[in-house]
Nucleic acid binder design. Structure first.
Lengths: 323, 323
DNA sequence: GGAATCGAGGGCGGGAACTGTCCGCATTCG
DNA sequence: CGAATGCGGACAGTTCCCGCCCTCGATTCC
């Protein structure tokens, strides 16, 4: 049998792949599948262990090998469908902007997209299109995951970027910038970039960018006039992004509300009533979460929210009266 | 220099890891990082290509290596944060039951969870708990992703499973079964399993199972008395799961509605009005999507939906009148 | 309790593969 | 044109891999 390291290394990868399915494999079976002797399988298992991937073995009849959790992530060997599932999962997660792992999400997306075979990419975008964007964005805008991956690549690769931008007042312009950071803020994403034409730093809302195209031209990254891009962004955005301090009384035990609205400040009033404040950043978002609790509640604080709920109330009223 | 295949294979993995970040790497830099000569790097790149992972090289100054999309998925080498991001993404995706990739999602979750280091697992569950379950389940029940991974492992590993089950009428019972399939249905999951005690096949709703514990005892999988678990389940469930045929008139161009409600049958009435039918399976779900469109609409068909909307209307009315 | 199955691991010999070095070549950018 | 980059052939020395022996320990089933 003609072999080489590519075979040895390839075999180790195949072995890793087999061991990653959540079941046990007897060494003889592995030997058969990989076309080597059981002795070699034992040695391969040792090699994997040397590499830091803990392979557990159960002895006796019915025994076998299994990859278990170690201290480092082993390389994930995915089949087509699993890769698609992960890509779709990341996209929906990015749309909803989960917790504090947005950057990591985007990095993982970029990494995956970079190596995702074309046929799978098609399936992912088809599925992505078929997925209901559950989050009702303030203005109905949801950020396009594709854009995020393109931006992440351009940043990592230090490539200049060309795109079209619609400013807040709607006036469009063409831009050519040196992208430096991608910063999540609420359910929005901002690109922090240096604009050589205007010789200054600029922030761009990702959902307002169109026709992204990395130019391929490299640049040497400049130092940001602040330690942290996020705080830099916050300073410059403070005046603009309105946040709604909400106060509402919810007729549900405080414990239940905390479980269903993590992130909100919940204050117990009595056994079955509590006061909720500071939920989110857009009235649509706030209204949705309050209604979604499915219990009685009263809104006290932001007049905008009350107005929005009144609209909702009227709209539903019309829907059922004319139907 | 003392080397071995574990070094060679390990180096190949490191190389793959470096090449997976979305940027270009000059060979000299790679050689420096991996502690080998540039010639070896070239050979390693060749080896990766032999393994089917297309490494692209750009010549000339400023050139370098980059991993591009090929025909097969290369092993994904993730850092801690990326792994957590993927795990969280899969969990939220599993909760929402995306499109037709549910099984793959669960398989990927099981694969990932199996090798996820403990410290990362803690972060994932913390983040998972902090994530708002956006989907308002019919009865507020969302399936626990952990359960799904445990079940998937038990199935793949052909392990008997013990758990407690609350039947539809609420009566609890202890079960000991041979799990065979996990079937998604709407936003619910069912386990298809053989119950040796009762000597027959049974279906269990995953959200009604508690105290899951694989016993470790193996079993030889029996043949299901049907070709396909999904259709088998459907036959047995047909009478129970009510689906609501909805008909509503929506005052929005048909094109827009199709974009925002994929899966629904949309029929154009005139330029700015259309008829929507057959959206989903629970009134809460239907109501949510109709309201979420943010436009005028009238509901014609299921009286349950009208009733639900009236409740919603009244509840919102009380919320804003007393606030 | 015995047999069968499975993992762990030492030793050996032949053959093969890996690495580094040196070389000339092609390509791209400034 | 020169510098940086990738490409790849040839060679020599080292070493490492593989399959085949073997024994031992653990576990399960009969």
């Amino acid at each position: 049998m003609l072999v080489g390291v590519t075979d040895t290394a390839g075999r180790l990868l195949s072995l890793l792949s087999l061991l990653q399915s959540p079941r046990e494999w007897p060494g003889s079976e592995l030997a058969r599948r990989l076309g080597v002797s059981p002795r070699t399988i034992r040695r391969d298992v040792d090699r994997l262990r040397d590499l830091g991937y803990p392979v557990e073995a159960t002895m006796g009849a019915e025994g076998g090998y299994r990859l278990v959790a170690g201290t480092a992530m082993p390389p994930l060997l995915l089949d087509d469908e699993e890769a698609v599932a992960i890509a779709v999962g990341l996209r929906t997660a990015a749309r909803q902007t989960v917790a504090g792992i947005e950057e990591a999400s985007v990095r993982a997306m970029a990494k995956l997209e970079q190596v995702l075979p074309a046929r799978l990419r098609r399936r992912v975008s088809a599925l992505g299109a078929a997925t209901v964007p559950v989050v009702l964005g303030a203005d109905g805008v949801t950020v396009d995951p594709e854009h995020l991956t393109v931006l992440a690549s351009a940043i990592a690769n230090r490539e200049r970027l060309r795109f079209r931008y619609s400013a807040a007042d709607g006036t469009p312009s063409g831009r050519h910038v040196e992208p430096l950071h991608l910063v999540p803020s609420g359910r929005r994403w901002y690109l922090v970039a240096f604009d050589p034409g205007r010789d200054d730093w600029r922030f761009f809302r990702v959902d307002r960018m169109t026709a992204l195209s990395p130019t391929g031209a490299r640049f040497a990254p400049r130092a940001l006039p602040a330690d942290d891009p996020a705080t830099y962004l916050k300073e410059h955005m403070l005046s603009r992004a309105p946040t709604y301090p909400v106060v509402a009384t919810v007729h549900l035990p405080a414990r239940d509300v905390r479980a269903r609205l993590p992130g909100a400040a919940v204050q117990e009033v009595d056994e079955r009533t509590c006061r909720v404040s500071g939920l989110g950043d857009t009235v649509e978002y706030l209204a949705f979460h309050l209604v979604q609790l499915g219990c009685e509640f009263e809104v006290h604080e932001p007049p905008e929210l009350v107005r929005h709920l009144r609209d909702l109330h009227d709209r539903i009223g019309r829907a059922i009266s004319s139907g």
